[in-house]
Design a protein around this nucleic acid. Structure first.
Length: 302
DNA sequence: TCCCAGGTCCTAC
DNA sequence: GTAGGACCTGGG
């Protein structure tokens, strides 16, 4: 089944390679066709169309869910138009046209970003793929066997040794205990969709922050932006710290001394809050374009 | 062989 | 409140 997505004007390469999702793979050297799984559907994606390769009984239900993943309610042009422009952001938007923010499954997104803690991107992808292969359900399709992202039940019941065999390292206990919180119903991520950024964030942090759970401000903000579609979230990572230091500190009157210190909770709140205030309702879009630009500039200058 | 990675937690001030 | 260290493990 094919879905026409040309109206979304999106670029799969920028959208899948900007670090918001970790399971998409290009299947041609030009990176014009990407393959991955959304829920129980195996998907291939080009600029204009999304093709569903797995045979499932409730076809309409699946195609709706697949389309939602691409956040069709967001009109990219008008969002980018509304952002307060400066030279650096304008350059980023020119350089990466069609970079969209996805609406991923919040459970998958949260666990993926827990896997990202203190890992580089290839290692993150490897660990997540291992988890899917080991704990996900196989889905057959006309382009091969894929796996779903594991359910909370599967990871809540997983043995330490089996999680470690997926190369998640010390994060194994975070993953297991978050899964248990979700499985027990103590935290329902889907129910946070209708809450404000602040309330949804509070719900996640209050349940999942601390020794057992390992969900700090950055991981929480990524889940809020990339799955619960809180577009005013503004995650701060090492790249964004660099970006702020080089391009926004003086404009937004952020003291340079703040940026030299390690990222304490207070510093995080200050930086993220300042950027959210500056960029407004769609600050998260600005963040993604700035992230992409900062990262590629750094790669070319090495 | 060694350092580092889309962070977070703990400990000692 | 915060600096400084530890943390699994694969990649560069």
């Amino acid at each position: 089944m094919d879905l026409d997505v040309s109206a979304l004007k999106f670029n799969p390469s920028y959208t899948f390679d900007c670090g918001q999702a970790f399971r998409w793979r290009p299947v041609d050297s030009q990176k014009s066709i990407w393959v991955g799984a959304i829920g129980r559907s195996v998907i291939s994606v080009t600029r204009d169309r999304v093709r569903i390769h797995s045979q499932e009984v409730h076809a309409q239900h699946h195609s709706d869910k697949v389309l939602d993943y691409f956040t069709p309610e967001d009109d990219l042009d008008s969002i980018l138009e509304r952002l307060p422009k400066d030279e650096f952001l304008s350059g980023a938007i020119r350089e990466f046209p069609g970079l969209r923010i996805l609406t991923q499954d919040p459970w998958e997104c949260l666990v993926s970003f827990v896997c990202s803690i203190n890992k580089n991107i290839p290692a993150i992808k490897l660990a997540i793929e291992n988890l899917c292969d080991r704990f996900g359900d196989p889905i057959s399709s006309d382009i091969g066997i894929y796996h779903t992202f594991p359910s909370p039940e599967a990871l809540a019941n997983a043995k330490q040794s089996d999680l470690l065999s997926c190369k998640v390292g010390f994060r194994w206990k975070y993953i297991k205990y978050i899964a248990m919180k979700i499985q027990s119903g103590e935290l329902n991520l889907e129910s946070l969709r209708n809450l404000s950024y602040e309330d949804a964030r509070q719900a996640i942090v209050s349940k999942l922050s601390g020794r057992t759970f390992g969900v700090g401000p950055k991981v929480a903000d990524c889940a809020l932006l990339f799955s619960l579609h809180k577009t005013n979230a503004f995650p701060i990572d090492v790249w964004m710290s660099r970006c702020i230091r080089e391009h926004y500190a003086s404009m937004l009157r952020i003291e340079k001394t703040v940026l030299k210190k390690s990222l304490t909770p207070r510093t995080y709140a200050l930086l993220s809050g300042t950027m959210r205030l500056h960029f407004g309702k769609y600050a998260g879009y600005a963040q993604q374009y700035l992230y992409m630009k900062t990262r590629t500039d750094s790669l070319y200058s090495r």
